[in-house]
Computed example of a mutant assay.
Amino acid sequence: MYKRLKILVILLISALVSFILYGSSVFLITTINTMKERELFCDEKPLTLYQPTQSCRTTIVTAYYVIKSKYPKEDYIDWIANFLSLKDCMVVYTSTELYQTIKSLRPDWFPLKIIVKNLEDLHLYQALTPEEWGEQERMDRELPNGHNRLLYIIWNEKSHFLHDVALFNPFHSEYFLWLDMGALRHNRFNGKFLMQSNLPAEKGILLLEINPFHEEELILENGICNTDFSKVERIGGGTIGGDLESIRKWTSYYFTVFRRYLSEGKFVGKDQNMMATVCIETDICLIVKPTSPWEGNRWFFLQDYFLGRHNQKPYRLNITENREYLTVSD
């Protein structure tokens, strides 16, 4: 009787051990297969690709807020999905209600920092009173095209966004690029690194030339450019690149010009107007002239430029004639 009981216990233990080993092997095989499927999907090794201590040479900075626009929201969602498929390190400013939308459109293993900052908390939202923003709307000749005070606020906030990210530098980068989130209106770059080449060798703020400056626009009176850029297009505002030092100086001078425009009763809604003035007065701008002929949309030329498809060297506006490189207090 005792021997039979002993044999029964041994058989039960053997069966239990076999069951545990079998279950472990099934779990291991399933885990390995799942990892392989995930690797095939992203064409990378997601468990090791982006560690918390990762450094990226360039950080892309952008923002998305729902405001009145000439384009339907559905178009923006498609463009944002294209944008968020880029593998570059990325910081996105957005509102509380859009946090999950941004998070869901970005692959989990791609580097992303989302900063929740609602519209009413932005610097420019509080810079003018509602009455003053209303006056800016009355000055805007493009108001029928969908322009409004919230758009002005976001346009002018770009320099603050870029400056703040460059300061806290979550990805330990040496270069920072503002890129409008609605700028990727195709899927040709999906799943790629955008910032592959053509980072400037010298310090400065890299911008796109939309149309060349005219000679009479470059005149300085006591160091001040009095040209009215509200009716012409010279500099593109959708892409702004620079190192930390240059971004700090750019931001300081940009808002010096912003305040001067206000005091002179000029239109401050469109950032490109003040960007042109800053470029002329400071020598800080490195300007890229699109290839001619250029078949694509000229406003988006810098995307192909950073991908290395065009290699022209940016030129610096040396209007101030040997003036020491921008000495504005930070």
Results as ranks from 00 to 15, higher is better:
residue 7 I to N: 04
residue 13 I to G: 00
residue 14 S to R: 00
residue 17 V to N: 01
residue 18 S to I: 05
residue 20 I to V: 09
residue 27 F to T: 15
residue 27 F to N: 13
residue 29 I to N: 07
residue 36 K to A: 01
residue 37 E to M: 06
residue 37 E to W: 03
residue 49 L to P: 03
residue 52 P to Q: 08
residue 54 Q to C: 00
residue 58 T to S: 11
residue 58 T to C: 12
residue 59 T to V: 03
residue 59 T to F: 01
residue 66 V to W: 04
residue 72 P to Q: 01
residue 75 D to E: 08
residue 78 D to K: 02
residue 78 D to A: 05
residue 89 C to Q: 12
residue 90 M to A: 00
residue 93 Y to S: 04
residue 93 Y to K: 05
residue 93 Y to W: 09
residue 94 T to A: 13
residue 96 T to Y: 10
residue 99 Y to K: 14
residue 100 Q to Y: 04
residue 104 S to N: 13
residue 106 R to Q: 02
residue 106 R to C: 10
residue 110 F to G: 09
residue 114 I to P: 13
residue 117 K to I: 09
residue 117 K to A: 07
residue 123 H to I: 05
residue 126 Q to Y: 03
residue 127 A to H: 03
residue 128 L to M: 09
residue 137 E to Y: 15
residue 138 R to E: 15
residue 141 R to L: 12
residue 142 E to V: 01
residue 143 L to N: 11
residue 144 P to D: 07
residue 146 G to D: 11
residue 147 H to T: 00
residue 148 N to F: 07
residue 151 L to T: 12
residue 156 N to F: 04
residue 157 E to V: 02
residue 158 K to I: 04
residue 160 H to N: 03
residue 164 D to E: 02
residue 167 L to Q: 14
residue 168 F to T: 08
residue 168 F to K: 06
residue 169 N to Q: 11
residue 175 Y to F: 11
residue 176 F to D: 06
residue 187 N to D: 15
residue 188 R to C: 02
residue 192 K to F: 00
residue 196 Q to H: 02
residue 198 N to G: 07
residue 201 A to V: 12
residue 202 E to Q: 01
residue 202 E to W: 04
residue 205 I to E: 11
residue 206 L to P: 10
residue 215 E to A: 12
residue 219 I to S: 01
residue 220 L to V: 12
residue 228 D to K: 01
residue 229 F to V: 14
residue 233 E to I: 10
residue 233 E to F: 08
residue 235 I to G: 11
residue 239 T to L: 07
residue 242 G to M: 05
residue 245 E to F: 05
residue 246 S to K: 07
residue 248 R to A: 00
residue 249 K to D: 13
residue 253 Y to C: 09
residue 266 K to A: 05
residue 268 V to F: 00
residue 271 D to P: 01
residue 274 M to L: 15
residue 274 M to E: 11
residue 275 M to C: 02
residue 282 T to K: 05
residue 288 V to D: 01
residue 289 K to C: 11
residue 290 P to N: 13
residue 296 G to Q: 03
residue 297 N to M: 05
residue 301 F to P: 08
residue 308 G to W: 03
residue 310 H to T: 14
residue 310 H to I: 11
residue 312 Q to S: 07
residue 313 K to S: 07
residue 314 P to M: 01
residue 317 L to M: 14
residue 321 E to K: 14
residue 323 R to I: 01
